[in-house]
C-alpha cells in the first residue's frame, strides 16, 4: 500500500462545451513519487483534464486539488507547485536556451542566486548546458522537448503535467526522456503523463488511468487492472513433441479453463494463481509433455487499452 501523500486529487470533474460533455465526473488520485500514464483515445478528454489541472481551463462542476489547493478557488497556489509541459514545443524567435529558461524562472518570481542555481540545475538535469547559447529555432525536436521539460522544471514543482511529451521523438530522445522521467519520480515528484505511445508508458509508469468519452474506464497499476479484467492466469507453453496431444492433455486438467494454439506454442488459461500454475506444470510433466518453455503471459498496456476501450481508438 502506497503511503505517500496524495498530491493530485481529481474529484468528480465535469467539463461541458456547449452540447458536448468532454468530462463526465472523473475522479482519480496521484501520490507523490508516482508516474501515472493518462491514456485514452482521441477526444476522450485527456487534454481537457490536463488543461484544467494546469488552471488553463476551469471545470463546469467538480474540483481538483493539487497539493491541497483547489484549481478553481486557488489557481495561483496550484500554479506555484505545478509544472506544465504542453504538447506544443517552444518556438520563440531570437532567444537562446539560457535566456528562455532565465525568462521563465523570472516569470516564476525567482531572483538572484536562487534563479541562477535553479536554471543551472535544470540545464544540467536535462543535458542542455552544451546548448545554452543556441537559439531555440536552431534546435531539433528532441532538443526542444528537453527545453520544454527544463522550462516545466525550472521552479522545482511538486507535480508535473506532461501532455504527449514523447510524440515525434526519435528512439534516443525517447530513452533519454524515459530516464529523466524515472529520475523525477525517484525525487518524489508526481508525474501525470498523457500519451498515445503505450509501449513507452508501460516501461515508465507505476500506474495508469484510462479515460474514454469523458469517463474513467479503469485505473490502477497494470497488475491490478489485469487482475480485475481477468481473474485467471494465462501461460504460454512451447512443446517439443506433438502439439495436438499436448493440447488434448492440457484440456483434461481440472485447473485449465481454456487452451488456444498460438504461434509455435499454446496459450493456456488457468483458474487460480501461482499454485494452480505449478499444479498444471507438474501434471503436464507427469503425462510426458516435453516443454521447452512455460511462462506466465503479462497483458501489455496496449491489450488492456484495447480491451477497456473496446477497440474504440480513433
Amino acid at each position: 500500500m502506497n503511503e505517500a501523500p496524495v498530491v493530485i486529487d481529481v474529484q468528480e470533474l465535469q467539463r461541458v462545451f456547449g452540447a458536448t460533455r468532454a468530462l463526465d465526473g472523473i475522479s482519480f488520485q496521484v501520490r507523490a513519487g508516482e508516474i501515472i500514464g493518462f491514456v485514452g483515445p482521441n477526444g476522450a478528454g485527456k487534454t481537457t483534464t490536463m488543461r484544467i489541472l494546469a488552471t488553463l481551463d476551469e471545470p463546469t462542476a467538480g474540483d481538483a486539488l493539487i497539493g491541497g489547493a483547489s484549481v478553481v478557488l486557488d489557481p495561483e497556489e496550484t500554479r506555484r507547485i505545478t509544472g506544465y509541459m504542453p504538447d506544443a514545443l517552444p518556438e520563440h524567435n531570437d532567444i537562446t536556451v539560457h535566456e528562455y529558461l532565465d525568462f521563465f524562472a523570472r516569470a516564476y518570481r525567482l531572483r538572484g542566486s536562487a534563479l541562477r542555481d535553479e536554471v543551472q540545475q535544470v540545464k544540467e538535469f536535462t543535458h542542455l548546458t552544451p546548448l545554452e547559447d543556441k537559439l531555440l529555432k536552431q534546435l531539433s525536436k528532441g532538443m526542444k522537448q528537453r527545453v520544454s521539460l527544463a522550462r516545466a522544471l525550472v521552479h522545482d514543482p511538486q507535480v508535473l503535467l506532461m501532455d504527449e511529451p514523447a510524440a515525434g521523438l526519435d528512439p534516443r530522445a525517447r530513452i533519454e526522456f524515459r530516464e529523466q522521467a524515472l529520475a523525477l519520480g525517484a525525487l518524489g515528484k508526481a508525474l501525470l503523463i498523457s500519451s498515445h505511445i503505450l509501449s513507452e508508458l508501460a516501461e515508465l509508469c507505476t500506474g495508469v488511468v484510462i479515460i474514454d468519452r469523458g469517463r474513467i474506464v479503469c485505473s490502477g497499476t497494470r497488475e491490478e487492472i489485469t487482475a480485475r479484467m481477468r481473474p485467471h492466469a494465462t501461460v504460454a507453453l512451447r512443446v517439443l513433441n506433438d502439439g495436438l496431444q499436448a493440447q488434448r492433455i492440457a484440456r483434461e486438467l481440472p485447473d485449465v479453463l481454456a487452451v488456444r494454439p498460438a504461434e509455435r506454442a499454446l496459450q493456456v488459461d488457468i483458474a487460480g494463481g501461482d499454485e494452480a500454475c505449478a499444479r498444471v506444470l507438474a501434471a503436464l510433466c507427469a503425462r510426458g509433455v516435453q516443454m521447452a518453455e512455460f511462462r506466465q503471459v503479462q497483458n501489455s498496456l496496449e491489450d488492456i487499452f484495447m480491451e477497456v476501450t473496446r477497440g474504440g481508438m480513433a
Binding site: T55, L56, R80, T82, Y84, A88, A107
Partner: peptide, 8 residues
C-alpha cells in the same frame, strides 16, 4: 498558455 501557468 505558458505565461498563464506562471505567476506573471
Amino acid at each position: 498558455d505558458l505565461l498563464y501557468v506562471t505567476g506573471m
